[in-house]
Design a protein around this nucleic acid. Structure first.
Lengths: 215, 215
DNA sequence: AGCGAACCGTAACGTACGGTACGGTTCCGC
DNA sequence: GCGGAACCGTACCGTACGTTACGGTTCGCT
């Protein structure tokens, strides 16, 4: 489950194939869904080539999702030397990045098609999106939380529960509203504000008691 | 926007029509999507009748969403005499109900089709689902929050912000995971536990300071 | 220069499905 | 009992779209 996906490895995509997948993403954002003909037209390639490269429509969508995921990789935070300020800024940065991602046109479009796909029950697009979205975030954030706990800044039993609380405080109703076509007014400033608020709330809930000279 | 929907009023649905809509809901849960032929077969009615009653596929879906929404109406909480215990139980009840709703088969199916629909951009199914889901919840919960504030149990500037925090603490990653086909293990017991935890966290964040004899 | 692989553009095929038409049946009002 | 409205079951139509097939072109290799 965690090994690098024997089949659809993003690494061995040719530049031309990446262009095609970018066309898929643009089309998904603009039209909301895909026809193979539209992809071929937009990407100036033949449908035959699409089928040769990606197998079928499902394979094309899967490749596009993975391609997009590979574009938003970020470097891990060094949990080495971490004071309370660094921890706070790290959490706030995660929150900001996450809000920016889930409110981006591409993410919204991709999540929508994955949800549709999940409904029809054939394929695992939903699982892939989840793996590269919510679970990838957890994988990158949990080490930070653990480090914060080791340093005595955070107190929690289970990092999964702590993560999910943070997730909820940051995302709130944003994702479902966006998926359903509502626009919760996420300007750059609002994102920053929400990230700061969520971080403060999280620290209020999970921050270790800092009683003056308390044990 | 808040008046009772001049056209698709649930009240003047005949029993037969409600049966048809129930068939739609069952089909949506089982198959993930709808064909008019399948609905007609399942409901033992003719396609001609479906079109006569509901206009087109979109109208049928819209009616089904409204019909489902009308089935989960709950009575309002009396914000009259409210002590801290009653407030806590009220919040916890809201959280439990909400988690049960969003994790129900029907709600998941309906949200999925609404998301798909939103993607294709024709119609306002997403808005309807949002109106009867997230916004209806806010409409019922906010009076409770306001009452709690008046009584001095809660402290917040903006009830919308407070509500959204509560929403996030309760729902966390549940809804998106369910929509994408993941199963976050929401047993009856887990729902109760999550509701209690979310409520306690919310009170920790927004509960008015109860310093012994403090102002 | 000559060959073959890869690829483009377009046409073609089959099917699924939304929407319509129609004959037959039930049932209600008179 | 009779006429008509409502409705069922089925057949039908048009279109959209996934998938395949094919002729023509480019390009790298020898």
């Amino acid at each position: 489950m965690l090994q690098p996906e024997r089949d659809g490895a993003v690494e061995d995509l040719t530049p031309r194939q990446r262009d095609v997948l970018d066309a898929v993403l643009r089309l998904l954002v603009e039209e909301g869904d895909l026809t193979m003909a539209a992809v071929a037209r937009r990407a100036s390639c033949s449908k035959e080539t699409l089928y040769k490269w990606f197998g079928d429509r499902e394979g094309l969508l899967t490749a596009a999702v993975r391609w997009q995921a590979s574009k938003v990789r970020v470097m891990p935070v060094d949990a080495g030397n971490l004071d309370l300020v660094a921890l706070t800024e790290s959490l706030e940065g995660f929150a900001r990045d996450w809000l920016k991602v889930i409110s981006s046109d591409t993410s919204i479009a991709l999540n929508r098609v994955a949800v549709s796909h999940t409904a029809s029950g054939k394929g695992n697009l939903g699982a892939i999106v989840l793996e590269n979205g919510r679970f990838a975030l957890a994988g990158r954030l949990k080490p930070v939380l653990e480090a914060g706990k080791r340093r005595g800044y955070l107190a929690f039993e289970d990092s999964e529960t702590a993560f999910r609380t943070f997730f909820g405080l940051v995302g709130r109703d944003v994702q479902i509203r966006l998926l359903l076509g509502d626009w919760p007014g996420l300007t750059e400033a609002a994102v920053a504000g929400d990230a700061a608020r969520a971080t403060q709330q999280f620290l209020a809930l999970y921050g270790a008691r800092k009683d003056p000279r308390g044990q």
